[in-house]
């Protein structure tokens, strides 16, 4: 089985904060990490490989330093990494990202299953997986929380819905996006780390994947950011006054209409 895992390097959102005084993003010490959902996609891919034999290829479109997450992926069980990187990809929205990944995958050639994270935590859009599957003309299911059965030709999966889950079956080739409930990612082994250090990362440029310059990066993106601003504040601070008991009495007055 040939399994592709799409992954993205993102800033660790826990660290990104708005400075209340200057209204700018305080980035001191912000780390770049592998998108957390993609760790789960990778883990699931490695488990499928262990069950049915085959190979796992990790792929990312990003700046040169995104190579770090590919090495991390190899240390956790991926066989190889592909870095799709070019200045011309900068500013890609989800449409242009799906276009680029599609062309990179065509270059790599052939696959049975593609696994993506549910969403990347920098944008929370959840659009690249479905977009990529649509471009490749393969069936897809999002938000998979469990693979119940799998073989070398297809699988049965639980996909999360707002009110529970749906159980669905698919034949390869197919694409899944996964949520965190699906598994507990392993920590890299010493051997894995050694392998990752030495691994040769394949690099693909815009020219390598024969991308149409009008379809990649910012120029190829149908969505344009025209304004960024801090979130609006809702109301002025209004703390009740008096002793604690007086405050509670005032609150009871305000709340009595709800009784």
């Amino acid at each position: 089985m040939k399994i592709i895992v799409c992954m993205k390097q993102v800033p660790d959102a826990k660290d990104v904060r708005l400075d209340p005084v200057t209204n700018t993003l305080a980035r001191e010490g912000v780390q770049s990490i592998m998108n957390p959902y993609d760790q789960h996609a990778l883990e699931e891919a490695v488990r499928l490989k262990e069950a049915h034999a085959g190979e796992v290829i990790a792929i990312t479109m990003g700046p040169p330093q995104a190579e770090e997450i590919l090495r991390q992926a190899i240390s956790c069980g991926a066989d190889s990494g592909v870095l799709v990187s070019d200045r011309a990809f900068a500013g890609a929205d989800t449409w242009a990202t799906a276009y680029t990944l599609e062309h990179a995958l065509k270059k790599i050639g052939g696959f049975d299953l593609i696994l993506c994270g549910k969403q990347a935590i920098d944008g929370d859009t959840a659009q690249v997986g479905p977009g990529l599957a649509t471009r490749l003309g393969i069936p897809y299911v999002t938000c998979v929380q469990k693979i119940r059965e799998s073989s070398a030709t297809g699988l049965v999966a639980e996909r999360m819905m707002d009110d529970g889950y749906d159980l669905v079956a698919l034949d390869y080739p197919a694409l899944l996006t996964v949520v965190k409930d699906i598994n507990e990612p392993r920590v890299p082994s010493i051997k894995g780390k050694m392998k990752a250090k030495k691994a040769e990362i394949v690099r693909l440029s815009a020219a390598d994947i024969e991308a149409d310059p009008a379809c990649i990066g910012l120029p190829g993106s149908p969505t344009k950011v025209v304004n960024v601003f801090p979130p609006p504040s809702r109301a002025e601070r209004s703390v009740l006054q008096g002793t604690l008991d007086e405050q509670i009495d005032q609150l009871v007055e305000k709340l009595k209409v709800y009784l």
Partner: peptide, 9 residues
Amino acid sequence: AFGGNIMAT
């Protein structure tokens, strides 16, 4: 965007 830290139009 960015976990709600900024708004984007």
